[in-house]
Design a protein around this nucleic acid. Sequence first.
DNA 1: TATTTATTCACCCTATTAGGGTGATTGTTT
DNA 2: AAACAATCACCCTAATAGGGTGAATAAATA
Lengths: 208, 208
Amino acid sequence: MERAIQIVVIEDDEIIREGYALLIGRTEGYRVVNAYASFDEAAKTIADDYPDVILLDIELPGTNGIQAIPKLKKLLPHAYILILTVYESEKTIFEALASGASGYLTKNTPASKIVESIREVKDGGGPMSVNIARMVIRSFRKNQESPLSKRETQILEQVAEGKSRSQIARDLFIDLETVRSHIKNIYLKLDVNSRADAIKAAKENKLI
Amino acid sequence: MERAIQIVVIEDDEIIREGYALLIGRTEGYRVVNAYASFDEAAKTIADDYPDVILLDIELPGTNGIQAIPKLKKLLPHAYILILTVYESEKTIFEALASGASGYLTKNTPASKIVESIREVKDGGGPMSVNIARMVIRSFRKNQESPLSKRETQILEQVAEGKSRSQIARDLFIDLETVRSHIKNIYLKLDVNSRADAIKAAKENKLI
DNA sequence: TATTTATTCACCCTATTAGGGTGATTGTTT
DNA sequence: AAACAATCACCCTAATAGGGTGAATAAATA
């Protein structure tokens, strides 16, 4: 048999922390080598635990979970980080994933699913709760009923890429004045009067 | 008991199509009301099937799966679309999700998982294969070893929001010349000499 | 059919902007 | 000691953005 997957839990609530340790530890092939109540406490000795997977809570005293991710990455470049939290805000999730978390599960996830997810993370997968996946999917979905026409949307996308009017005109094989005209109409429809404001409004309304 | 979930399958390979119909239809609470070999064929009568969930293949003759999504949405605004395909390219996935697909599964997904996913989609969730989730997560992850400093990254982000130098200076409470200096250094490091090129390079390297 | 909308283009104007060059100061990290 | 990060200064000019006003043609829609 292979060596058991070494797991470290970082979670401030003692009940939950011990609960995880117990639940996961009793599964064959999974070994909880240590459990900490905060990142600041974990930082001292976690390198000696040689964890394969770190279960990390977001709401931690001192250094919070998001801040802890890059620090953990530095301490243990090869460990996978699995976020396990009650937070479901879009911002938090994306911050965690952008910082290098390998997965994101909510605390209502059943123990069997958590164990399965640890295996998936270890094998290079990226598990997500149903709610998280839904959020990610929604974040990718553009608003269906856009006030902008196809052409306007296309031009706004290029504006958001930092292109100048003349660049856009060249790329779309239309006149500079036409681009100008479209941008004016975009500003009218979005009730803005600058590139930055148009981009902001468009992102907020998922028009681009 | 509740009314069974009505499912329509659109898949050109007959073996796979009938396989899905059989596998899903034998599960209680799930009813495959129809199966089509192409969207163009389905378009004629699918509205009479009143499906709750549509299993959609990407590689279809004629109108492909991605193109079919908005058309299906128009025909059946309340149906959920679940992509079931071998394609795993990042672009394809995001196109599908952006077009309004509710979920994305790969064809190596076991039947039990597919059935479970249909239920999840119906209940408002968004299922994704492990591989897909991994891809989505990777797409959210920023490059860890960025050549840019924190400040430079921050300024580049604002440039990508379409802000002018003076706007950035105001927002960061620093001098206009400082912003200029940072942007010059960003251009140097990224080997570009325009906003548009800097944004492009930064996105390609996941620096922002 | 009538009317709106989309897409295209034109010319007026000016303050602002972007980008290149060159150099310097003050910390912080290595 | 040396490199990097972050800050600011002043030279320059071509290009850009944004405002105003107007118009032709085609496509979609009422």
